[in-house]
Amino acid sequence: MTSKQLLTVKGLQAKVDEKDILKGLDLDVKPGEVHAIMGPNGAGKSTFGYVLSGRDGYEITGGEVVLDGKDITEMDIEERARAGLFLAFQYPVEIPGVSNLEFLKAAVDAHREAQGLEPLSSKDFLKEAREASKKVNLPAEFLKRGVNEGFSGGEKKRNEIMQMLLLKPKLCILDESDSGLDIDALQVVAEGVNSMRDGERSFIVVTHYQRLLDYIKPDYVHVLSDGKIVKSGDASLALELEAQGYSWLAEMREADPEEMHREVSE
């Protein structure tokens, strides 16, 4: 390894409900890079994000995951978050009765505590939160509402990006953050992400469509199929996939599984 890795995933295997979903996934992400992971439904794209985040029921059965030099596979969900991992959900959950503001402050303070910092004063936090909500085009009154309560699909996604802005993670995983968004909302999400690109922070953009990648330019594009990355390339691969679809994957498997794996390991 010549330069520092932010994330190293080696031979990652995971199962959900006794079913193997990830079957030896390899991925290296250096600081500042944007990686897109594409692939057909059921390939394990969302599972990958959940496994990295430590969600219960997503059991790692083999391989390793190292984030910023630390093995995170044995860490609790909240420890991974504090270590700098952030997963923007495809379907953020609604939590009525818990105000967005209270939740965000608890999250920010937990991050600060992990870094040996004092909790923010309510006033300072409110200022930060207002700025962040403005950046993602959410009215400040959304801060007072229950977490995602009654938010539209687009508002939920923007709320995810707002959390990302406040928590300043090292690695952001966007799980289909484009699904169900119109072009305007898509741009807001993309702008939020792009505004956080600083040469250090890295992104894994999981998406089914090429569309989002028009706005968030990836350095690498990977194709995930049947729990493994089967093809990697630069941004042009995404365009290729958009044109061809994923049917070639099945043909490739049938033709010569050995060949396919050789290509991957290159």
Partner: peptide, 15 residues
């Protein structure tokens, strides 16, 4: 709700 619990923890809030 386990989903809500996971959501909060995934943002760094202790269990």
């Amino acid at each position: 709700d386990n989903k809500a619990l996971y959501y909060l923890r995934s943002r760094g809030v202790s269990e």
